[in-house]
Design a binder for these strands. Structure first.
Lengths: 151, 151
DNA sequence: CTGACTGCAAAATCTTTGCAAAGAC
DNA sequence: GTCTTTGCAAAGATTTTGCAGTCAG
């Protein structure tokens, strides 16, 4: 896993290459996603940052703009979780898919080599040049099943 | 594949069981999805229905309400296609996944036994009671690749 | 008749945009 | 200094809701 400093350098490099500027707000959002491994909506990030850094002024629009920038740069990735809305996570990890508990909202990541291979083959079969893929398994997690059976 | 009449009966039965009413608008939406195999946003359906049935008054709110009802009843299913928004399709077919061309928006359906099996296994591994799953492969379709290389 | 359904318009979300001031380089 | 970025508030886009009239059963 890349270190935060490594990530920061990468981000600064990217900004420089595109004549963009390194700002406190952009740094905070990047750092937040690095430190808080998980899946967040723009609103989540906005609220938590305001709370954790009352000294820094930050607007929701900046969060949206920065997330878009980070996503275009392939530093973060997003995924839509139905009712829970679109969520962002640091996208530097190895590619992975998600299990979502429809009851409590818990998200588990997994990686399966066989599925990855099949996806490649399917894309090939239809002459698609694959650029990405998402797979979500919805269900009830262990804890919620237990809670249910006890109720 | 179920016939339209069969589907209609199923729908009426369901309405009756829930003390709901069978209306012209609900019928039109169901028929539209049956006759037009494909993926549509609520807006698409609304516009096309207005066009095809200028005599019947129908509001966008009714389209939303009916699609929600049909989805809850597992007669239609929805999937979010990123920039193209949330789309609905008749959900009576065998389960299938989607290939999406990010260039032209074409959607191709596919079914892969091996992927299905792996999904079951993964759910089991994490002790999830699987209730559904979605898999989307994004890429550039054959036609768009050609158009690109010729440009 | 009774209660559900409908269209409409207003409201609620969620996301983007215009703009003047502030900040990075 | 110059040009990007920011926060704010307004504007958009999409979806939901309240309501009075309409319609199915």
């Amino acid at each position: 896993m890349i270190s935060y400093n490594g990530l920061l350098e990468k981000f600064k490099e990217l900004l420089k290459n595109n004549a963009l500027k390194f700002t406190k707000q952009r740094e905070l959002i990047l750092k937040f996603l690095y430190q808080n491994k998980g899946h967040y909506t723009p609103e989540d990030i906005y609220m938590l940052l305001k709370q954790q850094h009352p000294d820094v002024n930050i607007g929701i629009a900046t969060v949206y703009r920065t997330l878009t920038l980070l996503e275009e740069s392939h530093i973060v990735s997003s995924i839509s979780f139905g009712i829970q809305g679109k969520k962002y996570e640091l996208g530097l990890k190895k590619h992975h898919d998600h299990l979502i508990c429809t009851q409590c909202g818990k998200i588990i990541e997994f990686y399966d080599e066989i599925i990855e291979e099949r996806q490649e083959e399917i894309a090939k079969k239809f002459n698609f040049k694959m650029t990405g893929h998402t797979m979500k398994i919805e269900g009830i997690c262990e804890a919620c099943q237990k809670a249910e059976s006890e109720a």
